[in-house]
Each structure stands twice: as C-alpha cells, then as structure tokens.
Design a protein around this nucleic acid. Structure first.
Lengths: 219, 219
DNA sequence: GTCTATATAGGGATAGAC
DNA sequence: GTCTATCCCTATATAGAC
C-alpha cells in the first residue's frame, strides 16, 4: 500500500488531522478554523486531537515544515545552463503550485508569522531564497546574452518577482468576483504576470517566445 | 480652533476612539487589538466605547471610509497631460503614504474583508481603480511617445503595479530584520519598485531620468 | 456621557474514564 | 487511542446606576 496517498479511512489519525487541517485552513483561512472544527470534520473528539498534538500551533508548524521542504526543492535554480521560456514557465508553475497547496499560509501571513518566531525566521528565508533564485536566473540569462539588464535592474526585478509570486493569489482572491473561473486559471495567470515582469528585459527572440507560450497556456 | 487636528484631550470621545483605534491597529494589527485595549488606551470604560459605537466592526468601517476618501483623491489621474518621472515619483509617494496611514487594513486584508461584505466590495473597487489608473497613465505615456508598450503589455503591467502597491509594505515587514531602517525609507523603496516596473518600457531619455531621481530619493 | 458589573459565547486545552 | 466532561480564559456586548 502506497505511503503517499492512502485512503483517508486507512490513515493514522495523526495524519488525517494534518490533512484535514490543511484542507480547512486553505478553504476558510487559518484564523477561522478552530481545533474543534478540525475534530468535527473528522468525527473525532477534541480530546483525541489534543492527544496527537500539543496545540494548534504544532499542527501549523508541521504543515509549514512540509511546505518548506517542497518549496525548497522547487526553488532550486534549474540546472540547465540557459533556461528557455518554456523552462521558465514550467519552473514558475511548480513554485505557484506549491504555494497554492499551502495557500492558507499566504492568506494570513502577517497574523500567522507574528505568533511564532521560528516560523517567521524560516519564512523570511524562503522569501530571501525567492529573491536570490530570481537573481541567479537573471544573471545567467544576461551571461548567455539573452537578457539585457544592469545589476540594479536585476535587484529591483528580483524583489518584484518575489512580491508577485508571494501575493498574487491574494490579489486574485480579492479581485475575482466570487467563484468565477477556476483555480488552475489563477495559477497560470500568476505565472504569466511574473514572466511579463521579465519579458521587457529579454532580447527580441525570447520575447516573442513568451508571447507564444502565454497564448498556449492562458485561457 | 482647527477642526482637523485638535489636541487629544479636547477631542470628542468618539473621535478619540477612532484615532486611538487606528493607531493601535496599525501598530499591533487589527486582530490583536480588542475593544478593551482601545478603551484602556484612552482610560475610558469598555461600556463607554460601546455607547459611541455599536461594535468593533463599526469602528473599522468608519476608518475605512476615511481611507477610501483619501485614497480616492490620491488615485486621480494626474491632470498634466504627460507626467514626467518626477511627477510620477510624487504621485506614487502620495498613494503609498495613504496606504501607510491605514496600513492595518493591508496587513490583515483577507481576514478583515472576509468579515464584511460591504468592505470587500469597496476595497475591490479601490484595487480596480489602482489598475485602471495605472492603465490610463501608461496609455497617456504611449500616446505622448514616451513609452513603448502594447495593450497586453500595459494590462499585465498595470496588474503588477497594483499588486506591488498593495503588498509592498507587507513584503517589507517580513523581509526587514526587526526595527532596522525607518518608515519613510520603506515608502521610498516601494515607489522605486513600482517605477522600476515601468522603466523598461520607457524610451531612453525617461529611463535616464528615473535612474537620476531614484538616486536623489533613495538612501 | 460615563461608569461598574455582568451576561454570553467561543476557543484552547486538560483530566480521567474506557 | 479515544471519548466525555469540564475548566479557564478572553472577547464581544449589554444593563442599569450615576
């Protein structure tokens, strides 16, 4: 029997709690989900939940660690020396999918980080990593003579990339009229937004490729 | 005696409550400030606070209305036909200052909007306005032959501008090591980030001006 | 207008039986 | 491992005296 995705009924209670918490947090926002809600969802008692976890914070911390591991892998600089636009698209999509899977975190970011110093430190590291990964990729593109940008350009650009990658889903949630369009559309549009940040610095050929790819994936 | 800024002691209790709420919300975040905290801060009783306001939500709603009025003025398209970089800098600074003054809102945006439908609608309108104002300015620059950008370029760019303007302070708060650098630095850097979004679309001359201005204002 | 006292409700968390 | 019962605490909000 597979370790990654057993049927809920067969899972250990501890894992079922983690999974249900993630789902409820993502759907309703972490501040609005109490330990009782989580227990209810699983038809177990609140006491049982507290047998498995010291408190709500521990659940959040464990979910964060899962997220940190996943995004850590995703944020590795693509090994191909000169990524083309298609690589970039897929790379960003992976990052966005990770964020999407743990979006509850981004939804109430300030609130959650303010309650846990360890989390704050680790999350800051992820942001720094987003910026430095973006910088590394841009520098690579410049060296490969695909991109035209000064060091200051790249610094500002990388910060902007990190902001968009971090907050795009929040922006979408507010902008979107309720329940119009579906989830994966949002992700694709986010990827497009980030790439459109980079596009003006690319030399003609690469720019044309972006235009083509975005038409393929968008809508 | 001036109507806008009387000394706190001379103000009506109702206004003192609004002012103290704004200050506490901005400093600690709205979810962490209770009506009791507000009353404590002013050395009045909780009962007294509830004599002046039906509930906490009403306080938040009134603060929002103040904000909406101010940002509404700030978001007007500058009337000069072709704004130069200096105009843009000052214009953006005004917008960022407004956001800064009511930053508690942006800090827990999702949380606050999820509790109040009217707020959500009005806030969405502000976001739309940010996007459409950015679009209008860009179109103006293109017509004036200062900018080089297609309609799709401008659409994506305007969305990105809105995201950065909306979430820059949050990003800064997380990135910054606690209490290093001061507030107005953050605003200036935010303005710079937005302008660096626009810069690559500008023709040579305007780009050089941005570089010069940012050196003047930054650091 | 302002206070004191209090009602109400909900969330976090524990004790102890099974 | 799981349940029931319960405690504590905090936040919102109201009642009624002054």
């Amino acid at each position: 029997m597979p370790l990654s995705e057993p049927t809920p009924a067969a899972m250990k209670t501890r894992d079922r709690i983690l999974r249900a918490s993630l789902q409820l947090f993502n759907e309703h926002g972490e501040p609005r989900i109490t330990t009782n809600h989580i227990a209810d969802e699983l038809d177990i008692s609140p006491g049982n939940l507290y047998y498995h976890f010291r408190n709500k914070d521990e659940i959040i911390w464990l979910l964060f660690q899962q997220f940190e591991r996943q995004i850590g892998t995703a944020l590795q600089v693509p090994e191909r020396r000169v990524p083309d636009m298609e690589d970039m698209w897929l790379y960003l999509h992976l990052v966005f999918e990770n964020i999407w899977e743990y979006r509850f975190f981004y939804r109430d970011l300030d609130n959650i980080l303010s309650r846990n110093k360890k989390l704050r430190t680790h999350f800051r590291r992820i942001l720094e990593r987003k910026v430095s990964t973006a910088t590394a990729i841009c520098k690579g593109l410049v060296e490969a003579d695909v991109m035209n940008a000064s060091s200051e350009d790249i610094a500002a650009l990388s910060r902007n990339i990190a902001v968009i990658a971090t907050y795009w889903l929040n922006f979408q949630r507010i902008s979107a009229l309720s329940s119009q369009g579906n989830d994966s559309d949002y992700l694709a549009l986010g990827v497009y937004q980030v790439l459109s940040l980079v596009a003006p610095f690319l030399k003609g050929e690469a720019q044309a490729l972006l235009r083509q790819i975005s038409q393929e994936y968008l809508i």
